[in-house]
Each structure stands twice: as C-alpha cells, then as structure tokens.
Nucleic acid binder design. Structure first.
Lengths: 333, 333
DNA sequence: CTGAAAGCGCTTACAG
DNA sequence: CTGAAAGCGCTTACAG
C-alpha cells in the first residue's frame, strides 16, 4: 500500500509528530534524529498526501486561474507567466474556463465554497465582475489580470492603455499621417475607452480632428478588422492609417486592405495593440503597442503568493505595468 | 465559521451519515428526511469541503494536464478541448507546464506521489516519454495526446499523420507541382517520419523523385521556415512548392518567399500542417492539413473520465482521429 | 431507513 | 527535544 507518515515514524522509531516536524522544518528536532528520519523518508520514497496535508492545514498551496478562453494568444501568454511563477513557488494551478457560461460560473463558485484552492487569479470572463467582487468580499483572495480596464476595487494587474495608444498616435502623426481610422474593441471595456482617449488626446493636442466616422466599433476578432475596413472602403471614408485596438483585428485589417489593393504601409499604415507572437509575422509585420502579457501574469501570481505567504496584504491598488511601442514595417518610423 | 456536515446534521436532526447519503445519493433514505436535509443544505449554503471528501474517498475528481508550453497555438486548442470536457464532467483540472525542465518534472512526479490528482493527460514535454511510461506502470492513469507519433505502449490519442501528408502530396501533384521542398519538424519525432513517409510515398507512386536536397530539417518554429527557404534560395535549389510540417514553419516560409520576391502560389505553392487559427489569415491564407486539436483534447479527457468512472478500462490502443485537408489560396486546387 | 464509530493521513496545541 | 491525543471534515462498513 501507500507509504504514510506512520510507516516513516515506525521505521525511524519516532512519533508521527517528529516526522511531521522534520518534514516541515518547524520546532526543534535533534540533528541526529532528523537525519535518521530523513534517511527513512528517502528509503521509503515517502511523499506526504496532499489531500491529508490540505485537510489538516486548511490550505493546499493551490491557486485557481479563471480565464474566458484558452485559444486567444493573449490569454496563453498571460497564463504562461502565471504558470511559471506558480510552479516555481511550489503551488498547484487549477484551471477554470467559462465556456459553458452560467453553469461554468456556478461550478466555479461552488469550488470556492468547497475551498478547493487558496486564492484565484482571474482574467475576467464576460459579465462576471460582479460575482468576482462578491467572492472577494466574502474573503476569497483574488487578483485580476485586468484586460478590460475595469479598475475594480480589488487587487489587479493592468497596463498603461492610454499611454500606449498615445504613443501610437504620436508615431502616426510624426510619420505624416493625418487621418487614422480607429477599430475599437467592445465599447464597454475600460481599456477601449482608455485607448481611445489616449489616442485622440494626442491628435487633439496637435490640432488633428478625429471625426466619428473614422471610429469603428470592433470586438477584438480578426473578422471585425476585415469588416470595418471593407465597409470604410465601400463607403468611401478617407483614411491614411489604422489604429486597431488589438493585433487580431489589425490582422483582419491588413487582410482587407490587401484584398482591396491598398498597400501597407505606402497607402495605409497599420498599428495594432498587444504584440502577440504572430504580430511579427503578419504581412507586413505589425507595428504595435506591446502589452507585457507574460509579466502581467507573473505579477498577478506573485502578488497572490506573497499575500498567501503572509508577507503582503492584498491591496486594491492596481499594479500597472508599462506598454512598449514596437515599430515594424506596417507603420515604419 | 465554515458550515460543515455536522452543522447540517444538527439542523436537520439526523446523523452525519444520513446527510452524507443524501449528498451522494447512495443508500436508501426516507424521502421526507431527504427533503428536510436538502432544505437545510440550501438554507445554510453548505458545500462539502473538497479536501475532506478527497481524503475520505481517496480521490478528488481532479485531472492533471501536463504540457510543454502554453504559448503554442496547437497546445491552446488541445487544452481548450480538455478543459471543456473535464469541466462538463465536474472534474477539476490541474495544470503543469515544464518550463523549468528537470525541476518541473521532479515537482510533477512528486505531485503524483502526493496523489494530488486521479489521472493525468499529457502532451509530452521533450524527453519525458520514459518517465511518463514509468508513472503509468506504477499505476497512474495516463492518456497522452500524441503530437509526436511516439506510439507509446500506454493510452494515447493521435491523428493520421501519414494520410494527411499524403493528401498534401496528391494535391500538389494534381495542381501540376513536381518539385516540392519539405520543411520537416524535429527528425526524431514519429509524426515527422509519418508525414515524410506519407508525402514521399505518394510522390514515388506517381513517379516523382524527392531528392534529399529538397528535404530540410526544421524544428516547428516560424524562424526555421524562414531560414530553410532563404538557404534554398541562396543555394539555388529549384522548387515549385513547399510542404511544411506545421503551420508555424509554413508561415516563416511564406515570409521568406515574399521577402525574396517569389509569388505564392504563382511561383511557389505552400502547404502547412495543423490548421491553427491564424492559418486562415496568413498572406496568402494557408492550405493546410487540419489536425482536430480540440477533438483530440476532448477524446483524451473523455477516455480518462470514462476510465475513472469505472466504465472503460484504459487500453493502450491509440485513438486515432482523422486529419482533414483544407484548401486555401497558398496552394489552390 | 438510520446512526455510532472507525478511518482517511496529516498538523498542532499541550504536556513533559 | 519528543510524544500522545485531538482535530481537520468527510465516507463507509457494520449493526440495528
């Protein structure tokens, strides 16, 4: 059968208490006794049952990560940052996605009640901010990787959306563009508002107007990027550049422009947002506002782990990591 | 404090045993008693502690998923299929990546000993087949999503690599190409051998030779696709088409061809493998051999869950899901 | 149909 | 420095 702490105790001729002490390094144990116990542990290949430890301690060094979907490049990058940090700290990572909507959330909430994990890192699934906040109020340690610019009143990690968009605007103006077409993300996202404000703000400062006709509502998909460009072309809306609120829609824009015979960047310059891995390999490679996705995941995990370690109380103030402007051929300098 | 089964029992004026019975639907319970217990459970908002249940039952309805990296599109798709299936079955999903090499594997193995999960689904991290096999022999329920064509002697889910590659070859020949350049994946992967055999087999059948000079070793990265094409062009190796062993390297090939002024598909037709989401948005869109990634993840999860449910013994025979040939403009019909 | 008691495998006061 | 015992919150024979 399975080797238990009792087996180790018996073999080492000590009590389970002593074994537990050398296991956890708590309390004084005679050096020789400890060595003997360690030898037995090695010989028997003993590993404490995580279930038993969890029950006894009331915590199991496990974090949950809740994400809307796993097939978005952005999410994969953040998740990798989280996984690296969590694993390095010796924590487990329980993954939850929300593909089944209400059902999924109910299941997740019930796992919270079941105390299946010590804390949760979340990339907010659509319309769950309220339930997240509720869970947080009920005492669940929570850190949000805020891709929506929600500025929730619980801990979060975000990026400088307005500044990043401002850099994009300045770059376009500096290279002589005067009529950018903006493809936004979903309008109710805070990050979309921020990117809009940051971008248009620079234009206004420099005396360039941004008519509403050149601000098109997208939804962060490749498809929407195509559609917006096709429509603008059909309607004859004049534009000499595109600022898409993410790289996926920028990719769609590149496609539609090419299909319509517009050259990038000669006729139209294109800038995206995120710098997902494929951004360097679109045709032409995409100038974009890099979000430090990996680092955001790492920061979220680190805050949570430090909190659980008792070092740092979890404060609501967001950790804001800076964007970085990446120039490639779709909008050269 | 936390509501426990004892609280429910007291409030419903029954024993913990009875509460447990209505919770798990095992054993006969008087209908009225059961209703009363359920009412109390609802009123108190009681949810059983997963830690306690796990310890008592010796299993916690949790699966582990071990992956090499989370930032490859292929992995994201498979993982989504796994997550959907696992969640729908009410299981938890513990995620492990292997970014820290040996250390990671040691940690994973120790989690196995700790009985932190009931079974594991794995996309094999480099060079771990041996340890996986060992864990499986020691009784760990294991299903591998076999992207390497390893044909291990434990349960796995794979795809028809040879047939898929054969379809690609037939398509190129049918459209008049006679000199394909092959960009392989790592040579020691079984899937690479299979794709090579399947592809070259069709060529041979139709009397077309495939000289070694037109078989270049790649490593599944975008970069390798670029490098191979650049080198072939420099060395003056003649080719009228490219068969890349995955979409990422095909993307690199498209890039290098364009940079060199070769038109796709007019001068060179390009076919990839996988059909990751961006394949439809490369320039031009990529003709490719689709792997049913989502379905592979789902199948792996389903086999594991059925096994754990006691329905099906886990057999070594691989589940093989068919590839599908997807024609887009990089190699039209 | 129902309950008392043992057991799952640890940790942690408490006592010495 | 060390150990006996209680406790974590469930499930499961066993007995009635």
């Amino acid at each position: 059968m399975r080797v238990t702490i009792a087996d180790v105790a018996r073999n080492a001729a000590v009590s389970k208490t002593t074994v537990s002490r050398v296991l956890n390094g708590k309390g004084e144990v005679d050096a020789e006794t400890a060595d003997r116990v360690r030898a037995v542990i090695a010989k028997l290949g003993y590993v404490p049952s995580s279930r038993a430890v969890g029950l006894a301690r009331g915590s199991n060094r496990t974090l949950a990560m809740l994400v809307p979907s796993l097939t978005w490049p952005w999410v994969g990058e953040v998740l990798q940052g989280v996984a690296d940090t969590v694993e390095a700290a010796g924590y487990g990572l329980l993954l939850f996605t929300c593909n089944r909507g209400e059902d999924s959330m109910a299941q997740f909430t019930s796992q919270v009640s079941a105390r299946a994990f010590d804390g949760v890192l979340v990339i907010e699934p659509e319309n769950t901010l309220r339930s997240m906040a509720a869970l947080h109020r009920q005492g669940l340690p929570l850190v949000m990787v805020d891709d929506r610019g929600q500025r929730p009143d619980f801990p979060s990690v975000a990026t400088t959306n307005a500044e990043g968009a401002a850099a994009a605007a300045a770059h376009l103006l500096d290279s002589g563009r005067r009529a950018p077409l903006i493809i936004t993300g979903p309008r109710h996202f805070g990050c979309v508002q921020d990117r809009l404000t940051g971008f248009v703000g620079v234009l206004r400062e420099r005396g360039v107007a941004q008519p509403a006709a050149r601000v098109a509502a997208g939804d962060f998909t490749v498809r929407c990027g195509q559609t917006v460009i096709e429509r603008a072309l059909t309607e004859g809306i004049p534009f000499d550049s595109v600022f898409a609120h993410n790289d996926l829609s920028a990719t769609g824009a590149l496609h539609a422009l090419r299909a319509a015979g517009r050259r990038v960047p000669d006729d139209v310059a294109v800038i995206g947002f995120d710098d997902i891995p494929i951004a360097a390999y679109t045709e032409p490679p995409l100038t974009t506002v890099r979000q430090p996705m990996r680092a955001m995941g790492e920061a979220a995990a680190r805050r949570m782990i430090e909190h659980l370690g008792g070092v740092t109380p979890l404060q609501a103030a967001p950790t804001v990591l800076p964007t970085e402007f990446v120039i490639r051929s779709s909008a050269p300098g």
